[in-house]
Every structure is written in structure tokens, then in C-alpha cells.
Amino acid sequence: MRFSEPFEQRFQEMASHYPTRRSLLVPTLLYAQDEVGFLSDEVVAEIARRVELTELEVRNVISYYSMLTTQPRGKYNVQVCTNIACLLMGGEEILDRCRLKLGIREKETTPDGLFSLEEVECMGACCWAPAVQVNYDFHEHLTPQKMDQILDQYTKKGTERRR
């Protein structure tokens, strides 16, 4: 199991920040997931070994945090906020538009593996609502039309890279 060079550097550096190995767990899981796409059995086993925990303990932690997943997702994970501020500004319309445009519902992935969709809780964009995060990128002040354009841009970006 190999991770990237920046991942290893970060892991080494962080290891000196805490009195226990276990403290590395949550951020390390997220960075590992970003590289592999999801927390596969192999990733879980590797991280458990590194932080000196059992796989069961690691899985126990994974199941608590909503960003962590043991299932593969699309290359672009579209996370639509529908919490109060976004709800008032049309967050549900944005979610509906994503469902129609992508042809999937929440927690599903498009057949080409490009997109997955999630309805998420407040992401700290209340003053710029409604908002969506695609992976880590914020998109704010959305309308259904703008959402279409954003999804088109990601489709273009995703298919270009494949060629």
C-alpha cells in the first residue's frame, strides 16, 4: 500500500505533534481517502497498522464521521447543503436539479463514475447560500441554471483528463 510523497511527509510531521499515535487517525483517514477515493479494506488495514489500533477500532471511528466512506464514490462528489440558510434560499431546488441533471439520487454514483451526489448539513456558507461543495471546492450564490453550468464544467474537466 503506497501513498503519495506529500501524504507521507504530512504523516511523518503530524506524528510528532501528539503524545499518542491514535490522534493521527481522523485527519489521516481523510487524506488517505482523498488519495484512494474511499477507505478500502487495504487502506483501513494500513492505517490501523500505522496508528497501532485494530481494524475494528478504525472502522468504529470511520462510521462516526460523515465525510469518511468505505464505499467508492464518483470522481466529483457533489455535496448539496439543504440546512436552514440554504433551505430558505432554494437549496432543495439545487438538489433537485442535481438529481435530474445527473440522473442519480443521494449516495449514488453516475455509471461513468464521474459524479456522486450527497445532501449534506451546514458547510459554513450561510451568507452566500445556497451553496454546494464539489469535493473541497465551494460554489455559492447558486441558482439551478448556475448549477447546470458548474456540473457541465466538471463533466468537461473529468472527461478531458481521461483522454
Binding site: 503530524m14 505533534h17 501528539y18 490522534s23 481522523v26 485527519p27 483517514l29 481523510l30 462516526y64 464521521y65 460523515s66 465525510m67 469518511l68 448539513e121 451546514c122
Partner: peptide
Amino acid sequence: FDVYWHGGAGAY
């Protein structure tokens, strides 16, 4: 004095 960053993974 040392200051370190730490990251969460989604939990209110």
C-alpha cells in the same frame, strides 16, 4: 510554545 493544526472529518 508549539502550535499544531488538526483536521476533522465531518461531525457537528
